[in-house]
Structures are given as structure tokens and as C-alpha cells.
Design a protein around this nucleic acid. Structure first.
Lengths: 254, 254
DNA sequence: ATGCACCCTTAACCCATGTTAAGGCGCGAC
DNA sequence: GTCGCGCCTTAACATGGGTTAAGGGTGCAT
């Protein structure tokens, strides 16, 4: 059973069994967090790379007027701070959205693995560049998409990313966050997010209850959101073994 | 005379003379572009890394309704596509904003340099991570800052980045773009951008004429924009060689 | 069982920004 | 010269999304 981290990296780079074992063994320990707790504070210099195993976390910044902007969702398989390889202290905070389990990999250990394996080096690059691509897409959404498309687009992305780590079944995914947190993500007010969610519900596009999001009409939602998963760069390379599922929401739910 | 690329990298990593020479020699040729021309099209797989030497360029995406979002400004010293190391085809386009000179470094050459020099590897990581940090800050601005602060913040960033490559003198920098392009950058309309520029002018903060931007009251502008340059990670390392944070644990700061 | 905290929902009103449209200036082409 | 074309500017009007405020559900702590 691969950790979601490995599962994710295999979407970008072909990792040998040895590489996979090395990564698995590099995890020094696990920590669990309640919802809404800081994992890494702004200004810290973490000595380990944090990888989400279960639950949702996020990158965020606070503004002087007390508002918050969430800049990334960290889903199972995502690393929180690949940055350490080179940048100084964290310029933003990382917190859980829901109760989470986090794996810790000592920086030195990961650095050594990367030195010893070209594939692992590539994998870390790939993960970083995909993070950046997602960030760019979010920026486009904030700058040029109206609220409803912005949220619809985010939902499509969520399904695609969770599918890539095997956590989406038939168009249903976890979404264990509040409307306020969604608002902080898409740069809106929780009041307005609520309006939009109602609208998407009324259009029969989604159901979102008790932390579970159901996409009822995936194609309609993608069309509406103008969603093209290319930016996620989820194209599992030809592999000597084991094929993982590819792109986003094709099937209609039961 | 160091190229702006090297000048920029030295803000993050200490490069030996040999490393600097190697980078300079890796440039296979230069190309010049008029303003408003594509350098790299979406979907391309460039075989060289493009580095801006003179002029301004940008990353952008077009939306189906014909609007454009600019996602990054590429200033002298910035690389356009460090991505190539790992991602597939470009998921966005790169175009000039003003007439520009671009240096080309064959992917293979840069890859070899990176393999041979830890400092160069680090430098490329650093540049990538700084790009990402800038992207995050832009996202925060789009999500949570009103138009006037957003533009003011961008101007502060511009001065800081150009200062880092020696292209700012006494608060005066080049800004060879149109108001429409600024609007596409900050996610506003050109009409509204015009209103804000007038306002900043009337407040005696800036003058922007004929492609030159003057910051008249830098402190006032920074305060107004809530600008903190920490996210640019511009802290030139001590100039003796191979100083690098060796990643071990540190106590938690405030 | 009561009360409190958190979250979702709704409504009325307001404002920042978008839209549309028109005029002016500067500059290169002819 | 003068025509045309970017680009900047301004104005009148429209609207998406913000603000404020209130009510209701649920679950947990006492």
C-alpha cells in the first residue's frame, strides 16, 4: 500500500521499487492534528518536510485587517514545505483545515535521497512545478473569473487531484471545510459563497453535505467552469509496472 | 559585467567565479523581440531556457471570452521556463511587454551545469521558489486587497525586484507597459486602473510617464500597500563560498 | 435540560468595480 | 499636412459582490 505521497509522485515520474522504499523509509514519524491548528508558523524554518497523509491542510497568509487568504489546499500526498531546499524562513503559515495526519521526513534524509536518485530529484521538481502551475490557475481564476465559475473550477480541480491519489469514487470526494474557509480560498465573502453554493445546488450540479461533495453532472460543471486539467500535469509516465488512474471526472455517478 | 541572470541568482546563492563563468558560457545565443510578441506559445516544449536580459516580458493565459490574465512579470534576470526540467508542454504562453533581448541556454547545457555544481542547482531551486512566492503574494493581493493597494503593492515589488538586479536608481524604474497590460496583471479593467493611477498621482505618491515610473514617497506607498519584501527572499548570502543552511533543526522563533 | 459556540442561511442595502461610450493626444504612414 | 491608430482620459450608468444583521440548526459542555 503506497503512501499517498508516492502515489502522487508516480503521476509525474516513474519511480522504481527501490526509490519508493527509500521514500517510505525516510519518514521519521507521524503527527496528528485536530482541525484548524497550525502545522508550521510563518517565520519558522522547519527541519523536516511535512507531507499530508490524511485530511486537508492549507497555506495561508493573514492581512493587517485580519482577513485571511488561503493560497493552496494541501491534500493527501501533498508536501507542505519542499521550499526548505533553498529558501529561508517560511513566508506564510500552514494549518489544517480538517483533522489530519502528517508524515515528517527530515530535510537531510530527503536531500540525501535526492542526491542518490535522479528519479527522486525529478519527482520533487515535478511536485514543485505542479504546485506552481496550480497557483497560476488560481490566480487566473481570481483575476478573471466570476464567483460561480471560480468555485466550480475549484471543485473540478479538487476532484481531479483527489482522483490522482485514489481518493475519489464516482464523483464523490471529501470536502471537510467550512464555507468561511472556502470563501478565504476563493477571495469572496462567506455570504456570497453561500449564495453561489445554493445556485450550484439548484442547478443540480452538486451536493455538499457533512463534508462530502458530490458532483452530479461532471461534464456540465466542467463546461461551466471552463475546466481543462492540463495544468495539473497528471500524466503518469510509461511505467515498467502498475498503472494508476488518469484524468478527471469521466464517469457519471450512480 | 555580469548578466542580470547571474546578478539575480547571487541574491539567493553564493556563486563561485567558475560557476558564474559556466553560466555565462552556457548561453548559446541571443534573440531580440519587439514589444507584444510571443516568445513561447502555450503547448510548446522549448529546447532552451529563455532568460530575459533587457525589457519586460510576462506569463499569460487567455480565457474563452477573450480576456487575458497576466500571471507574472519577467524582468531582466528572470528565467521564463525553468519548468522544462520535468513538466511537459507549457501550460501558458510567454510574451514580451516591451522590446526585449532574451538569452537562450540549451536545456541540456543547464542540466549538465546543475549536475556539476551544487551551487547552481541551489540557485535554480531558489529562483523557482522565489517565483512561487511572488505568485502567492499576487494571489493574496487579488483575493484580499482593493484595487488601489493592489497596484501600489505591485509597484513596490517592481522597485524591489529591479533594485536587486541594479536597475533602479533613486526610486525611478522602467515600466514600459500600457494601462491595459497593467489591468490584465492586477485583474481589473483598464478604466479602473486609470482611475487608481490618477488617484496615486493626486496623492503625490507616483509619477508614471513615458515608460518611467517614479516613486515619490516610497515609505508612504509601502505603508499604504502593506508591502513587506520578505517574500522576495532577497538576502544575498555572505560572499565567501559554500555557505548554505545545512537544514538542521532550529528553535521556533516568535 | 439548558446554554453556548459554530455554522449555515436569508434579506436589505451599499459600494467598488465593470460597462459603454465618447473625446483627445501623439505619432507613424502616406 | 492629414489620416488612422494606439493609448489615455472622462463620464454616466449598471451590477457583482460586500456589509450588516438576524434567525435557525446542531452538537457539545455544564
Amino acid at each position: 500500500m503506497p503512501t499517498p505521497f508516492i502515489r502522487k509522485l508516480k503521476n509525474g515520474v516513474d519511480l522504481s521499487e527501490a526509490d519508493q522504499d527509500a521514500l517510505r523509509n525516510a519518514v521519521s514519524r507521524r503527527r496528528t492534528f485536530e482541525a484548524h491548528q497550525d502545522i508550521i508558523a510563518e517565520g519558522e524554518r522547519p527541519s523536516d518536510v511535512h507531507v499530508v497523509l490524511e485530511g486537508f491542510a492549507c497555506r495561508y497568509k493573514l492581512l493587517p485587517d485580519g482577513t485571511r487568504q488561503i493560497m493552496a489546499w494541501l491534500l493527501p500526498g501533498d508536501a507542505c514545505d519542499l521550499n526548505v531546499f533553498g529558501l529561508g524562513p517560511m513566508d506564510h503559515g500552514i494549518a489544517t483545515l480538517s483533522a489530519s495526519t502528517i508524515a515528517l521526513i527530515p530535510n537531510a534524509a530527503l536531500e540525501r535521497l535526492s542526491k542518490d536518485s535522479v528519479a527522486i530529484t525529478r519527482a520533487l521538481w515535478w511536485a514543485t512545478l505542479v504546485d506552481e502551475a496550480i497557483l497560476r490557475e488560481w490566480l487566473v481564476a481570481m483575476g478573471r473569473r466570476p464567483a460561480d465559475q471560480r468555485i466550480a473550477h475549484l471543485f473540478c480541480e479538487l476532484v481531479a487531484r483527489l482522483t490522482a491519489v485514489g481518493l475519489a469514487e464516482g464523483g464523490t470526494v471529501e470536502l471537510p471545510i467550512t464555507q468561511v474557509e472556502l470563501a478565504d480560498t476563493v477571495g469572496l465573502t462567506s455570504v456570497h459563497v453561500n449564495r453561489i453554493i445554493q445556485q450550484l445546488r439548484d442547478q443540480g450540479m452538486i451536493v455538499w453535505r457533512e463534508g462530502m461533495l458530490d458532483i452530479l453532472r461532471p461534464q456540465a460543471l466542467q463546461d461551466f467552469a471552463d475546466f481543462d486539467p492540463a495544468y495539473l500535469h497528471l500524466t503518469p509516465p510509461p511505467s515498467t509496472h502498475d498503472r494508476a488512474t488518469s484524468a478527471a471526472g469521466e464517469k457519471t455517478p450512480a
